[in-house]
Nucleic acid binder design. Structure first.
Length: 212
DNA sequence: GCGACAG
DNA sequence: ATCTTGTCGC
C-alpha cells in the first residue's frame, strides 16, 4: 500500500468530518489507547462516568500490526484494533478521547477524526506532542492555553493540564468543536497530565501487551 | 536541499 | 511506542 494512495483516502474520509457543537449531554466518556508487543497491537477502551470519572466498562482487542508507524498515517495502523475494541463495549460512550490528533493533521484526518467518522461517535484528539499547526507556548499554569492554527484557522488547542508540565495538543476529532473540547478537557484531567479515561485505557493496553 | 515528523 | 531508578519539586 503506497502512502500516496493513503493520502488520497485521507482527503476523502476527511470530507465526512463534522466540526460542530456536541449534541447530546455527556454522561459517559471513553478513553482509547494502543500498546505494542512485537508484531502485535493491543487496543483498550475504558468507559468512565462523567463528571464522576468512575470506571463503568472496558474492552480489549488485539491484532497483528497492519503497517509500521509512519507520521501522518497513524490511523491506518491503530484504527482497526480500536474499532474492534469499541464493538466489544457493553456501554457505548457519548464521547471518545483518543491518544493522537484530531483535525490538527496535514490532511485533517488524525486518528481521532478517522475513528470518529468510522464509528459515528464524537471524538477528541489528545496528543502528547505536536504534529501539525502553528502555535505559541501557553503560560505555565494549569488551564492556560493557546490556539493551534492552520492558515488563519483555529484547528486545536495547546493546553496546560498541570502546572509546569508539557502541554497537551488537543483538537476536535468529529461531531464536536473547540469550545466543546475546552469544556470537557480540564474536567477529565483532575490530577495528572493525561486525561483520566486515556490514562486508564493506557494502563489496560500496556499491561495486556506486557503479559502477552 | 533542509527541517519536522501523533504513536 | 519502548527501554527504566532514582530524584527533584509542589
Amino acid at each position: 500500500m503506497r502512502l500516496a494512495q493513503l493520502s488520497k483516502n485521507q482527503r476523502e474520509v476527511a470530507e465526512a468530518v463534522r466540526i460542530v457543537p456536541l449534541k447530546k449531554r455527556v454522561s459517559m466518556i471513553a478513553g482509547a489507547d494502543v500498546a505494542r508487543n512485537g508484531k502485535y497491537l493491543f487496543g483498550s477502551m475504558a468507559v468512565l462516568s462523567f463528571p464522576e470519572l468512575l470506571l463503568l466498562d472496558e474492552s480489549h482487542a488485539e491484532q497483528r500490526e497492519p503497517i509500521p508507524y509512519v507520521p501522518g498515517f497513524l490511523s491506518y495502523r491503530e484504527l482497526p484494533v480500536l474499532a474492534k475494541a469499541f464493538s466489544r463495549l457493553k456501554k457505548k460512550p457519548d464521547l471518545i478521547l483518543v491518544d493522537g490528533q484530531g483535525i490538527a493533521h496535514p490532511r485533517r484526518l488524525g486518528l481521532a477524526s478517522h475513528l470518529g467518522v468510522v464509528l459515528g461517535v464524537p471524538t477528541i484528539g489528545c496528543a502528547k506532542s505536536h504534529l501539525y499547526g502553528d502555535y505559541e507556548m501557553p503560560e505555565d499554569a494549569r488551564g492556560s492555553y493557546t490556539f493551534l492554527k492552520s492558515k488563519n484557522n483555529r484547528i486545536g488547542l495547546v493546553l496546560r493540564t498541570r502546572n509546569n508540565v508539557k502541554p497537551l495538543f488537543i483538537s476536535p476529532g468529529h461531531l464536536i468543536d473547540l469550545d466543546g473540547c475546552l469544556c470537557i478537557l480540564l474536567s477529565v484531567t483532575p490530577r495528572y497530565r493525561i486525561p483520566e479515561p486515556i490514562r486508564q485505557a493506557h494502563r489496560m493496553a500496556g499491561s495486556r501487551a506486557r503479559s502477552a
